[in-house]
């Protein structure tokens, strides 16, 4: 196990390096720049700005300098928010996105698992069809539709919840539900498929033949195998969720990282984009690794190699 982890971490470094390199040059290849707006700056002003952030040096030098800084854990200053470093921006946006993402993932996971197991056990019953239909709807209807609909009903009509902002815990309810809905759908579909397969498998038949109670058969024997595909889905899905969603953050005016990321890409705030890319890539790598470890713990057939 330890050897496996060490080896994967060693592989992760070149992967990260590649991501950073690609992102750096793609960002610079995009037309425009951080100081270009509809106002053309006088050359001396633009020169002052570029000199301040080292953007007047050759691209290769900037790249090497950036790599050296990142290796030291310094993601640089934001080009658009002169008072803030990239770390400041991540530190301020990430907790909100993390809270929202983890809550949505938990809600989606619990509901999705329940629905999935229920559907698989009552295969082709009306309840199963109802859950399947809901799941298909949940996947198909995008958050920018469900979000305003829920706001309309629960905030504008019923007045139970605020339409936006995070002034207290009630502010979290709608964004979390909107983020969780597609997860409920996908997770219930994955669980149902896995459960149907597992219930027909030899080890479940053996368990039943040994006369184990149905509850133990389902929870201890079938479910363990059934959640394997779910675990490999959840790794990258979690990375996406906890780094924030532009749509939900805009819709509910939340101070998360998703909005910061897209806005900085549009404004060509190179350093902020790079910082978020590095964070996201590290999370994807880390969570995928975690998913593999969990899989090996759940299923003895999965070997870490």
């Amino acid at each position: 196990m330890l050897r496996f982890l060490l080896r994967r971490l060693l592989v992760a470094l070149p992967t990260l390096f590649l991501v950073v390199t690609l992102a750096f040059f793609m960002m610079r290849a995009a037309p425009g720049g951080p100081f270009e707006t509809n106002r053309k700056l006088p050359p001396e002003v633009e020169q002052n700005l570029k000199a301040k952030y080292g953007l007047d040096r050759p691209l290769g030098v900037q790249y090497l300098g950036y790599l050296a800084n990142v290796a030291r854990g310094d993601l640089g200053p934001s080009l658009k928010y002169p008072d803030r470093s990239v770390l400041d921006i991540i530190r301020q946006g990430f907790p909100t996105s993390l809270r929202l993402g983890v809550s949505a993932l938990t809600l989606g996971g619990v509901l999705g698992l329940c629905f999935g197991v229920f559907g698989a056990l009552r295969q082709n019953s009306p309840a199963d069809y109802a859950i399947t239909t809901l799941a298909v709807l949940g996947v198909c209807i995008p958050t920018f539709v469900t979000g305003p609909l829920l706001v309309l009903v629960f905030a504008s009509w019923l007045g139970w919840l605020p339409t936006g902002g995070l002034d207290d815990v009630r502010g979290y309810v709608l964004p979390v539900v909107v983020l969780a809905l597609p997860q409920v759908a996908i997770i219930s579909r994955l669980t149902r498929a896995g459960m149907v397969e597992a219930m027909a498998s030899n080890h479940v038949r053996t368990a039943r033949a040994r006369g184990l109670p149905e509850r133990s058969v389902v929870l201890n024997h079938a479910l363990r195998g059934a959640v394997l595909p779910l675990v490999s889905y959840l790794g990258p899905a979690a990375a996406g969720l906890i780094t924030g969603s532009l749509v939900v953050e805009r819709l509910f005016t939340l101070p998360g990282l998703g909005k910061a990321f897209v806005v900085s890409a549009l404004q060509r705030d190179y350093t902020v984009v790079m910082g978020v890319v590095i964070l996201y890539a590290s999370l994807v790598i880390g969570l995928n690794l975690l998913a593999e470890v969990i899989q090996s713990l759940l299923d003895p057939r999965v070997k870490l190699s």
């Binding site: 007045g159 936006g164 902002g165 805009r250 509910f252 005016t253 909005k259």
Partner: peptide, 18 residues
């Protein structure tokens, strides 16, 4: 002061008195 980048969301919040 709130950074209300989405004008429609802001309109809802003004309507509701938030």
């Amino acid at each position: 002061y709130y950074p209300t980048s989405d004008a429609i969301a802001a309109e809802r919040r003004v309507r509701r008195g938030e």
